[in-house]
Design a protein around this nucleic acid. Structure first.
Length: 542
RNA sequence: UGGGCUAUGGCCAAGCGGUUAAGGCAUCGGACUUUGACUCCGAGAUCGGAAGUUCAAAUCUUCCUAGCCCAGCCA
């Protein structure tokens, strides 16, 4: 990882002796699946700590049972494991409910917290606005005994939701809204995924988080920019609760990607409205979706690292993510032949029943991947887009009427005739091949007008290709999300793959030559082959 | 005169008073090529603006401008 401001801070803290070990934590709220934006937080927390031989905890931030669900904690754990990280500890905010209750009592005893009877509307009024100060709650000066009594009765369930809150007594005139007597405990008669019905009061994030960090010995508590002005509150709680260990919060900018929805709320809406097939739909920017689509953990790490870390909310172009996948897979993966949109070609001068098997390395740039044989015969399929009747210009490096191209790893073929149906659609090409031009023969008399890939008709296997594009197409507006959806985000095409791939297994990755990187989908089987196009190849054409 | 944060090529991002201002993505040239892929060469910024401090400033100061965040009993 290259230099960034947090890494610099850690180096300095280690050097000055402020800390002797870096301890970070990743604190997701289990209220949805993790997305690529979270990957920045995960990867930075783990990599930074690891860089200094420190450690990282996973702590589920489950202080609001109305949002959270066990299924999400499981999904989050799977994703982190997939990325290859092992938390030093797996914890829950709810593990600290007893301690935080005691600390709240401590604040009351110190005269720094009070039970408030204002309802939500009243509290909003009393809070003031961005430009006007707030005014003190009439309950602000209850005596300590009364506060203690009321708070224990809140805990005991004597009051209804919203009837009372516990608030920190700070400063209603502070220009920082967070300091205007923030609520630290609210009443919620809601069952918790971890603690069941033990509690009916739950701590707020601003109170719970610093305490948990302190209790856990976190040294560098990383979060996103919007918590910047919560930091004084964070420090206030650590100080007033007299925490032995003093953690520090550092904020970094969020990562956005062009054409990508990065909001939990929207992702949930897409799933709930059935606009996608669940959180792991291959079009989703969730880690689970990216995995299914074919992204590797290595590519995601490279992307995050290469994107850096700063105090700017950045929007990186999606090409950068795609590039990281291509870089990772280029030498790593088999390169095979697949025809996604087939056009039948008959080689009229090739024997009727003959099939030739030609030995071809899987990846000429990585011999370790071995080789297989590809078939050639009288009938083959090429990509429909690789043929045009009349060669439009000298740049056209594919087939055309009267033009000769090389079928990769096989022979030169020349197109002599185009067969069309009554609507004028091309249904078949009649070509001739030249025996002398066999690949590897050293034939050098003529140059073909390009090289195109193909698949032999009788030996190839039918396959479905999922051609995935961004879910979001309309970048410029603040329009409703559903109006910005790309109607072509998932186009399906039926074509053929070479025989050697017929036993491919779920998640196996390939480069289909000239067509892009593909991954065998979870639902694929030998009888029903399905591939997801992860990304296309780069192209200078067009 | 609410408060906080940010500003380096199209997009990210190093840089922390003295370097020809790293690198990646994108773009544009060119070489190579049985993938219009890969690879390889080559091209581009004086650092939001204005003043100031200094022998010397992207790096320090001041003012200005623009953008983002904050008025949940969400996180």
């Amino acid at each position: 990882m290259e230099s960034n401001f947090i890494k610099t801070i850690m180096e300095e803290d280690l050097k000055s002796g402020k800390v002797d070990k870096i301890v970070t934590r990743f604190p997701p709220e289990p209220s949805a699946y993790l997305h690529i934006g979270h990957a920045r937080a995960i990867i930075m927390n783990f990599e930074l700590a690891d860089n200094f031989n420190g450690r990282t905890n996973l702590r589920f931030d489950d202080t609001n049972p109305s949002n959270e669900d066990k299924s999400f904690v499981d999904a989050i754990q799977r994703d982190i494991e997939w990325l290859g990280y092992k938390p030093a500890k797996i914890l829950f905010g709810s593990d600290y409910f007893d301690e935080s209750y005691e600390l709240a009592v401590k604040l009351i005893r110190k005269g720094l917290a009070y039970v408030c009877d204002l309802n939500a509307d009243e509290m909003r009024e009393y809070r003031g606005t961005l430009t006007t100060t707030g005014k003190e709650s009439p309950y602000r000066n209850r005596n300590i005994e009364e506060n203690l009594d009321l708070f224990s009765r809140m805990k005991a369930g004597e009051f209804k939701d919203g009837e009372k809150t516990l608030r920190a007594k700070i400063d209603m005139t502070s220009p920082n809204m967070n300091m205007r007597d923030p609520v630290i405990y609210r009443i919620m008669h809601t069952e918790h995924q971890n603690t069941g019905n033990k509690w009916c009061i739950y701590p707020m994030y601003d109170f719970a988080h610093p305490i948990q960090d302190a209790l856990e010995g976190i040294t560098h508590s990383l979060c996103s920019l919007e918590y910047d002005d919560h930091r004084v509150l964070y420090d206030w709680f650590v100080e007033k609760c007299e925490m032995e260990h003093v953690p520090h919060q550092y904020e970094f900018g969020r990562l956005n990607i062009t054409n990508t929805i990065m909001s939990k709320r929207y992702l949930k809406k897409l799933v709930e409205a059935n606009k996608v097939n669940g959180f792991d739909d291959p079009r989703m920017p969730t880690l689970a979706g990216l995995k299914r689509r074919g992204f590797t953990k290595e590519s995601i790490k490279e992307f995050i690292i290469s994107t850096g870390l700063s105090r700017v909310n950045s929007t990186v172009s999606s090409e950068m993510l795609e590039n990281s996948l291509r870089n990772d897979l280029n030498y790593k993966v088999k390169r095979s032949h697949a025809v996604i949109d087939p056009l039948k070609v008959t080689i009229t001068n090739y024997p009727e029943d003959k099939i030739e098997w030609i030995e071809v390395p899987y990846n000429p740039q990585n011999e370790a991947l071995g080789s297989r044989k590809i078939a050639f015969g009288r009938t083959v399929y090429i990509e429909r887009e690789d043929f045009i009747e009349e060669k439009p210009n000298k740049k056209w490096k594919r087939l055309a009427l009267g033009i000769e191209v090389r079928l990769m790893r096989a022979y030169f073929i020349k197109c002599n005739e185009v067969i069309k149906d009554k609507d004028g659609n091309i249904t078949e090409l009649l070509c001739t091949y030249d025996l002398e031009t066999k690949s590897g023969s050293g034939f050098n008399e003529r140059k073909p007008n390009g090289n195109i890939h193909f698949v032999e008709a009788t030996t190839s296997k039918p396959a479905t290709f999922n051609l995935l594009e961004p879910l979001l197409i309309d970048s410029d507006s603040k329009k409703d999300l559903f109006e910005r959806l790309n109607p072509n985000s998932w186009v399906t095409s039926v074509g053929f793959i070479e025989k050697a791939l017929e036993s491919t297994k779920s998640e196996e990755k390939f480069q289909f030559i000239r067509k892009g990187y593909f991954t065998t989908d979870y639902d694929s089987s030998k009888e029903n082959l399905i591939f997801n196009r992860t990304v296309e190849l780069k192209s200078r054409f067009k």
